[in-house]
Amino acid sequence: MSKTQASHISALTHVSLVVEDQQAALDFYTEKLGFEKQMDMPMEEGSDDRWITIGVPGQDVEIALQAVGWFDGRDEEKLRPLVGNNAMLAFAVDDCHAAYEALKDRGVEFVSEPNEQDYGTEAIASDMEGNELLFLQPSADGSM
């Protein structure tokens, strides 16, 4: 039996991105990067808190835009340092140079221009809060 079968885990469905401003994050990821809004619903009645998820069109994994303001006390203290410091998100692109130019034209700020590596061509951008986003065109042999 494989490790996957033994754990009963069938898929990764969501990753969280801790943000200060959900609406600004939603606008950035949908308008500048072209992601699709998957869900946008109230967390609980009478609250301004929202469950917002976005995703790359055609992909099953969703990014939950997790507002740091949902939490208080120790949980907020633990999560607040993640705003702008989340783990890097990496996205595959067919043509790194073309993606770089198109995203730059939409106002996306880049930390690095496309550069060639052994594993492919990469460019690094940042979102509205400073989280780094890697755009990677795998090498011709498909290795990363």
Rank of each mutant, 00 (worst) to 15 (best):
Q38A: 13
F71E: 10
P42N: 14
A99V: 12
A24Q: 14
M41I: 15
E31S: 14
V108S: 05
Q22N: 05
A6C: 06
M43Q: 14
E101N: 11
A123Q: 10
A125Y: 00
P42Q: 13
V111A: 12
V93C: 14
A24C: 04
A90K: 05
D141T: 00
E122P: 02
D105V: 01
C96G: 04
S47N: 11
D127V: 00
N131R: 01
D40W: 01
T121G: 13
Y100A: 09
L79D: 08
V108I: 09
A123G: 08
V108H: 03
G55H: 12
F71W: 04
F91M: 05
E45C: 10
V93W: 10
L134D: 15
D95I: 09
Q137Y: 02
F35N: 10
D49N: 12
A140Q: 12
T53R: 04
A11Y: 09
W51D: 04
S10V: 13
D118H: 00
G58N: 07
S139R: 06
L79H: 04
G73Q: 09
F35M: 15
N86S: 08
G34I: 07
E20C: 03
R106Q: 12
V15W: 05
L103G: 02
D49Q: 08
D118I: 00
W51L: 10
E76N: 00
L17C: 11
S139K: 05
A90L: 07
P138G: 08
N85G: 11
D141R: 00
K32W: 07
H97L: 10
W70S: 07
A98E: 14
E31V: 00
S10N: 11
K78H: 13
P57K: 07
Q23P: 00
E44M: 09
A67D: 09
V83G: 09
M39F: 09
D94G: 13
L89T: 13
V15F: 06
E129A: 03
D94E: 15
G142V: 05
V61Y: 03
D75T: 12
A99G: 11
D27S: 05
